[in-house]
């Protein structure tokens, strides 16, 4: 008897939390599928209609452009981060040299840094490089601010690779570059995947740098474009919700296909401490 009572209390708690976390999301999708009059008639009702004309509308309003920009800058930044971070992590985790501790600490400290402390100089720097208001303005900041967590994750993984593998390759006369490429990198593929997913999700959703460094609508990334839509769609709420839903799809798809990877990845830095 008591265990049934206990169990039902657990279910009630779990379902309350399910509604709390899930309802806004359901509301967003349900509203996206309504037409404007339907929304104003019954904003509260769930899944009463299945109207896809908003999808076409938001694409016509420039969502395609934002999407392309976001894909381009996110993919490029993530690839660069994976390369740079794994290169830097190799000597940081497997070689002894002066200043190793300092360099490592300098990289890691970036995780705790409020971005605002760098905004004005980065803004000026971007202007002086002639990159202001172009998509490329984001590349440098995106790579730089993804490095700390990536170096952290990769050095942890690389440090665990047994020394003997490397020594065997060294006896065969392999250079550090080929050891890195042929021995180390293949061993840390899981960590590289974590780095990829973590940074993809973060950069896909990044807002502050885009806000400060880009002003023309055509060069905006998705989060900035959504913010732009907020003004243009102040009346057409279902249209706005359609844009939000579509913008969330890539990340949700990644989550759907690699749930464990995403959760451990997103918590990766903190968990491994």
């Amino acid at each position: 008897m008591i265990s049934i009572l206990k169990r039902s209390l657990l279910y009630i708690l779990a379902i309350v939390l399910l509604l709390f976390t899930g309802y806004p999301f359901i509301y967003m999708i349900s509203t996206a599928l309504k037409s404007q009059p339907q929304f104003y008639e019954a904003p509260f009702s769930l899944f009463t209609s299945f109207n896809l004309e908003n999808v076409q509308l938001v694409f016509e309003m420039g969502l395609t452009r934002y999407f392309t920009n976001s894909v381009l800058i996110t993919v490029l930044s993530v690839l660069a981060v994976m390369l740079f971070a794994s290169m830097a992590s190799y000597p940081l985790s497997r070689m002894k040299f002066k200043f190793r501790g300092v360099v490592y600490l300098l990289f890691i400290a970036g995780m705790m840094l409020p971005i605002h402390a760098t905004l004005i100089p980065i803004f000026k720097l971007t202007q002086s490089m002639g990159l202001y208001d172009s998509l490329w303005a984001l590349l440098g900041p995106y790579i730089a601010f993804s490095l700390p967590i990536s170096v952290f994750i990769l050095t942890q993984f690389m440090a665990e690779i047994p020394k003997s593998l490397e020594e065997a390759a060294e006896l065969d006369g392999a250079s550090h570059f080929s050891i890195f490429g042929r021995v180390i990198l293949p061993m840390v593929t899981p960590a590289l995947m974590t780095v990829l997913i973590y940074n993809f999700i973060h950069l896909w959703n990044e807002f502050v740098f885009a806000l400060v460094l880009i002003s023309t609508s055509e060069r905006m990334t998705l989060p900035l474009g959504l913010q732009n839509f907020k003004g243009e769609f102040s009346v057409n709420i279902p249209g706005l919700m359609t844009a939000l839903t579509l913008a969330s799809i890539p990340v949700l798809l990644i989550y759907l296909f690699s749930q464990e990877k995403v959760t451990t990845g997103l918590a990766g830095g903190a968990v491994k401490e």
């Binding site: 290169m87 360099v103 990289f107 402390a117 760098t118 905004l119 730089a144 490095l147």
Partner: peptide, 21 residues
Amino acid sequence: LFIAPAFIVYSLYVIYPILAT
């Protein structure tokens, strides 16, 4: 050579900006 690419980007966009701020 291994550390340089990361370190240059990081210095330019993280370390220098803090000092400039």
